[in-house]
Amino acid sequence: MAETVQPIRPTRLMVAEGSILLLPRHIKLRHDAGRDAWVLLAPERVFKPDDTAVEVLKLCDGKRTVGDIASDLAERFQAPRDVILADIVQMLQDLADKGVVKS
């Protein structure tokens, strides 16, 4: 039954400074009023992102690069950009592997 479909084989998204990311339609970042917490709704999963992850995910808008996001956060939180960049690349790679962000 597998022989009739021949789509393009998907490949792993490797997150880098120049990556432009967004949340797929079926991933929903939302503030849950009852819990007073941000939740990320995914197929049969609920993620509870920490404060940094929430800030990063809000900026994954399909326009900014990961580098832009790092610059933004570095300025807002007065922290070294290279440290932030390394942290968020790692975090976004993990989220990409879980299907939570796409390019």
Partner: peptide, 26 residues
Amino acid sequence: MNEITTGTHVTDAEPALACARAPVGL
């Protein structure tokens, strides 16, 4: 990041949300 399974097949029990008394999945 905490990850919670909302279905019946819970393989890795991560801590639930802080207000554990509110259900997550139906």
